[in-house]
Each structure stands twice: as C-alpha cells, then as structure tokens.
Amino acid sequence: MNTLNTAANRTWIVLLVATAITYWLGESGTAGKAGTMAVFVMLGLALLKGWLVIYDFMELRHAPTLWKALLVGWLVFVLGMIVLAYWMGLH
C-alpha cells in the first residue's frame, strides 16, 4: 500500500511532522526563549494540522462550502483569539 498515493496518507505524514516540530519547540525550550515567534509557529502548525484534518480526514474537501466555512472558521477564530490573548498576556 503506497503510503503517499492518497490525500489521507499524505496528510498523516504531514501531521506527524508538524507534531514533531511543535514537540521540539516545547522540549528544547525554544518556546520559552523565542517567545512570540515560537507561538506563531506552533499556532500556525495547529492551523495547518486542523485544516488538514478538516479537509482530508473529515473529508469536507468535497462538502458544501457552508460546512467548510463553519469548521475552518471555528479553527481560525479560536487560534486567532488565542494569539490575541497571548499578545494581551505580554503586556
């Protein structure tokens, strides 16, 4: 079973890689030092991962745009507010 032939398989690989990066950010303490930069990276990764799960795992790639908008909109809104809260935390 060629692992890269379907979208789901490719997505799985990308998700693992993204998780590894986030883990590395935390483990190596870069999250602490780099601060804002690290937060943008990890939340960007979360956005990518969420997007892939919604499109390929939940198979909403072929769903009505209403439902795509709802799910992705939720993801963008939550991550956006987290960034806002993080920025407020800096001051």
Partner: peptide, 22 residues
C-alpha cells in the same frame, strides 16, 4: 468517523495551547 476526527481536531488545538505555549 466525523465525531472521532473532531476529537482529534480538538486535541490538535489543545496540545500546543496547554502543553507548549508559554
């Protein structure tokens, strides 16, 4: 399956937020 993927989606947001973000 959709419900199961939602559980995964939630954890994808929860992990960086609670465990990593500082």
């Amino acid at each position: 399956a959709a419900y199961w993927h939602m559980v995964d989606l939630l954890w994808i947001v929860l992990f960086p937020l609670v465990y990593v973000m500082r």
